[in-house]
Computed example of a mutant assay.
Amino acid sequence: MKNAEPEHEQTPEPAGRPDSMIPGPPLIPFAEPWEYELHFPCDVRGPAVARTALKAVLGAHGLGEFTDRAELLTSELATNAVRYSLGPATVRLRWANPVLRVSVTDTCPEFPVSLVPGGPDEERGRGLLILDLLADDWGGCGLGEAVFGVGGKSVWFELVHGGGDPPPGGCAADGAGPRPPGLPVLAA
């Protein structure tokens, strides 16, 4: 009696080097700008997916020093996007040495407001306080109505790499230091 499961042919290993990998593109130099964007639905799993993607991107680019702060702040903004918006959200990471900017865009036009925490056990109302304490800079902008009638807002934060120097093993920096305070910052 023949086995009920279909027989599968083994895919032959490529001739030559069976353990070889196809080389990827060259790494982006530390001082070179880059940007990643993640779109997610209005779903409670979205903030966790955003945190995971953020950690992977920062680790791949040698920016692990930002991970803890960026993860907490991104989680806060992405959670608010899911909690208070009825539509999808977007998390954008942009590196322009020495500044990492993370912005979260959603379809809710209302900006978060500072709430005075009711006590140590209060579960809400600390988001802007956390941004004030952990971000080097932050802000936001309204998006108005888009072509398809969906408006919203974008809230962003920035983290500045210490002095603009690359991490060990990184490429030479462009010599730029942190942005002086008081200069205007463009929205997301």
Rank of each mutant, 00 (worst) to 15 (best):
132 D>F: 02
49 V>D: 10
95 W>N: 01
55 K>C: 11
100 L>I: 01
103 S>R: 14
125 G>N: 03
164 G>V: 05
90 T>A: 11
104 V>K: 06
135 A>K: 05
88 P>K: 15
28 I>Y: 01
165 D>K: 11
168 P>K: 02
20 S>W: 13
69 R>C: 01
172 A>Q: 10
142 G>S: 15
143 L>G: 15
104 V>F: 03
135 A>E: 03
34 W>H: 06
178 P>E: 11
89 A>G: 15
152 G>F: 02
19 D>L: 15
180 P>V: 02
48 A>R: 04
77 L>T: 05
136 D>R: 05
124 R>Q: 08
38 L>K: 00
139 G>R: 14
158 E>Q: 08
70 A>G: 04
24 G>E: 10
97 N>Y: 01
154 S>T: 13
172 A>W: 10
19 D>R: 11
80 N>S: 08
22 I>E: 10
185 V>P: 01
61 H>G: 05
133 L>A: 09
61 H>N: 13
171 C>H: 07
43 D>C: 12
184 P>T: 15
138 W>L: 04
88 P>N: 14
148 F>L: 13
15 A>N: 11
71 E>N: 07
4 A>Q: 11
13 E>L: 14
94 R>C: 05
49 V>R: 02
122 E>K: 05
54 L>V: 06
22 I>M: 10
111 F>N: 05
35 E>Y: 00
168 P>I: 03
31 A>W: 04
184 P>Q: 11
139 G>D: 06
23 P>R: 01
137 D>Y: 02
10 Q>H: 15
99 V>F: 01
90 T>M: 11
12 P>F: 10
82 V>P: 06
